[in-house]
């Protein structure tokens, strides 16, 4: 049975006001329930693409649709079905973890029963237990990131967009976050679009990857397929070979 496209990107170009090109004719699609990874070096354009899909930025040209809604013309509809976690995200430090989850839950739902269920899900995903009753300003970096991943996934979005979800985390917290993403994506059939520098993480989590360099999509495919096609041991080698060709 053919899965429908949750994300459809065609010839996306994004040029910033200062003339820098964040995306240069990028095209890809993501199927329902898929975990798709964008990988590439710093400044490749990964975050730009995620921001366009998350309706934070608008494309200069090209077509970007999320579940059939245009990210420019129907941005409000897109925001209702996505949940975005920026790389450099924070939370309101004077709220408790629980209050923060409740605040987010109320923005996605208005029925008491649904709000309670969302919060319960958030508590489960975060794994922070009693610490959720404390103010966020007392949280460590790892705890904060776990809270943020929880608030991103708990609302059961059609598309979860995660920019470097384990960035700056220690091994224990990184594993916890990765597992949350994997379990949640499979259990709830949530489509996930994520970016990462960590090739191991990408291979562990992603069904398919897109390799980006200087705003251009160099290759798309399953990690295993890409390694076979480019006769590489890992995705890093694939990347290096692709860049060599691009140059």
């Amino acid at each position: 049975m053919m899965s429908k496209d949750i994300v459809y990107v065609k010839d996306l170009v994004k040029i910033y006001p200062n003339g820098i090109k964040g995306a240069d004719g990028v095209s890809f699609n993501i199927k329902e329930g898929e975990v798709f990874g964008l990988i590439g070096p710093n400044g490749a354009g990964k975050t730009t693409i995620l921001r366009v899909i998350a309706t934070v930025l608008q494309p200069t040209s090209g077509e970007v649709m999320v579940s059939g809604y245009d990210v420019v013309k129907e941005a409000n509809m897109v925001r209702k079905i996505i949940s975005y976690l920026p790389e450099d995200a924070g939370a309101y430090k004077y709220l408790t973890g629980l209050e923060f989850l409740e605040f987010i839950a109320k923005l996605y739902s208005h029925r008491e029963t649904s709000i309670e269920k969302i919060i319960e899900e958030g508590i489960k995903i975060s794994g922070l237990g009693e610490r959720l009753k404390e103010k966020i300003k007392s949280y460590s970096k790892g705890m904060l990131r776990r809270l943020l991943v929880a608030r991103t996934l708990m609302v059961n979005p059609v598309l979860a967009i995660l920019d470097e979800p384990t960035s700056g985390l220690d091994v224990v917290n990184a594993i916890q976050v990765r597992n949350s993403i994997k379990i949640y994506a499979k259990e709830k059939n949530v489509t996930v679009l994520m970016s990462s520098h960590n090739m191991l993480e990408v291979e562990y989590l992603c069904d398919r990857v897109g390799i980006i360099y200087k705003g251009k999509m160099l290759a798309i495919g399953e990690p295993k397929e890409l390694k076979e096609s480019y006769e590489a041991q890992n995705l890093e080698e694939v990347f290096v070979k692709l860049i060599g060709r691009a140059l």
């Binding site: 309706t55 934070v56 976690l85 920026p86 450099d88 995200a89 924070g90 923005l107």
Partner: peptide, 14 residues
């Protein structure tokens, strides 16, 4: 400062 700005822009709130 609390790094909620980018998140807010993507939330389903007017």
């Amino acid at each position: 400062e609390e790094k909620m700005f980018e998140t807010l822009l993507s939330l389903p709130i007017n």
